[in-house]
């Protein structure tokens, strides 16, 4: 792996290597001294063309815990807003000695273009490109799911570590704006690679034309999707700009039909991880619209893994930077 651009095409072995390395990184993160020297003297640039404090801070923490030097380059208020091209910006960063460029961009394909170009020798990590992919989000979701899936299924005497395991047999339901979601796309490909079954629930207006060619089961009704007994329910954020009546009539109607309301939470509470007694999981990539796609009670429920997702995000990004910059498949 030279770059991490997408989960589509990411091999099973590479995915498992990232997840297993992330487990080791997570162990570091729980130590008192949360730092490894592996990237000392290396420079990681966070090139953010879109505001996303959460993702940037996560990558920054990850790089710093590996002792890398971190440069944050925000396109807002920089020369980029004066019309500098991506090419010139990247060549500038390259000339300053960037070893890895973590790029977030509103344009789908920006990371892939950067990796395919001769503008820079740096390793490229896609931190979200338009409505295309957000691979580290899917990896942190998979890390989160795998831990619970493994813990629920491991027999007495087997390892407490989920290392080397996958998501075979797990059923994951993703709910909401699939059309505009890079998180949904990245999760679909990665979860399938790891052996999980994927379901979508969304109004037809928020599903891409061509979804029928994807390896996914589509439900228009969230209630029917929940009746199919998913092991995990991932709620997607509804962007404010979709609420104007073009994609669905009102936020209230959306919540009634596709929101994880208190009533639906009661349904989810009865679901378990496979045949085990462990409760089914609730995930959300954040930031949440409490009261729209997820009720406050659902957001704070015991089977919700939202804060674990954030923690795991740092571990996954440490793993990705470590693997790309050291070439060390530890």
């Amino acid at each position: 792996m030279r770059h991490l651009l997408a989960t589509e095409g990411l091999t099973y072995d590479d995915a498992l290597t990232i997840l297993d390395t992330a487990e080791e990184m997570a162990a570091v993160t729980s130590r008192e001294v949360k730092k490894l020297p592996t990237l000392r003297g290396r420079t990681v640039v966070n090139l953010f063309y879109e505001d996303s404090t959460r993702t940037r801070v996560s990558f920054e923490a990850a790089a710093k815990r590996l002792s890398a030097d971190v440069v944050n380059f925000s396109a807002k208020g920089s020369s980029v807003s004066k019309g500098e091209s991506l090419k010139d910006t990247v060549q500038t960063l390259d000339a300053m000695g960037a070893d890895a460029i973590v790029i977030r961009h509103s344009a789908a394909g920006a990371a892939a273009q950067l990796a395919a170009s001769d503008w820079s020798e740096a390793a490229v990590v896609n931190a979200g490109d338009g409505t295309h992919e957000h691979p580290t989000q899917a990896l942190l979701d998979a890390l989160t799911l795998r831990r619970d899936w493994h813990a629920a299924h491991r027999g007495s005497g087997s390892s407490t570590s989920p290392r080397g395991t996958d998501l075979a047999g797990m059923r994951v339901l993703i709910v909401g704006d699939i059309l505009h979601s890079r998180v949904a796309r990245s999760n679909l490909w990665l979860l399938r690679t790891l052996g999980a079954e994927v379901h979508f629930a969304a109004p037809a207006t928020l599903l891409p034309l061509g979804v029928e060619s994807w390896p996914v089961t589509v439900h228009y009704s969230l209630d029917q999707a929940l009746a199919a007994a998913p092991d995990a329910v991932m709620m997607l954020r509804v962007q404010a700009e979709r609420m104007g009546g073009a994609f669905f009539p009102t936020a209230a109607e959306y919540t009634r039909r596709w929101g994880l309301t208190d009533e639906r939470l009661a349904t989810v509470a009865d679901l378990t991880l496979g045949e085990t007694q462990s409760p089914a999981l609730i995930l959300h990539p954040g930031p949440m619209n409490r009261g729209v796609e997820i009720s406050a009670a659902a957001a704070d429920a015991p089977q919700t893994r939202i804060t674990e997702q954030v923690t795991n995000g740092v571990a996954v990004r440490m793993a990705v930077l470590h693997l790309l910059l050291t070439g060390d498949h530890a």
């Binding site: 589509e8 789908a108 394909g109 490109d129 338009g130 409505t131 295309h132 992919e133 890079r182 796309r185 891409p208 034309l209 061509g210 979804v211 060619s213 994807w214």
Partner: peptide, 18 residues
Amino acid sequence: AQMNEGRVSATLGLPGWP
């Protein structure tokens, strides 16, 4: 719209030109 709407645009996440 950025490209033909269909199987490829769905995967690439580019707004479709139906």
